[in-house]
């Protein structure tokens, strides 16, 4: 995992997107290899790498219920 330059020629007007969140990548990207799939990922920053693993963790451990709160996370905090 490291920062990488996203060097482009001046006449290259294409754009690149974060593999995790979809946001725009400009000038540089944070690269990492997924420990789960072995795929190389280009993302915004370290936060996106953490987000990637957090989403995998959630999908592995929590079942979303349409219209409701998932499983053991349903304990409400007082407002």
């Amino acid at each position: 995992m490291a920062w990488n330059d996203l060097a482009k020629l001046w006449h290259d007007t294409t754009v690149d997107y974060c593999d995790v969140c979809g946001n725009l990548l400009i000038a540089r990207f944070w690269g990492f290899v997924s420990a789960a799939t072995g795929e190389s990922k280009r993302c915004c920053d370290e936060r996106c790498e953490r987000l990637y693993y957090r989403l995998r963790e959630i999908d592995g451990n929590a079942q979303a219920v349409p219209g409701g709160i998932s499983g053991d996370q349903a304990e409400a905090k007082p407002r």
């Binding site: 979303a64 219920v65 709160i69 998932s70 996370q73 349903a74 304990e75 409400a76 905090k77 007082p78």
Partner: peptide, 11 residues
């Protein structure tokens, strides 16, 4: 956000 109950809500 902290006051909201943790969970996954879909629609």
């Amino acid at each position: 956000i902290r006051r909201l109950p943790d969970g996954i809500y879909t629609g």
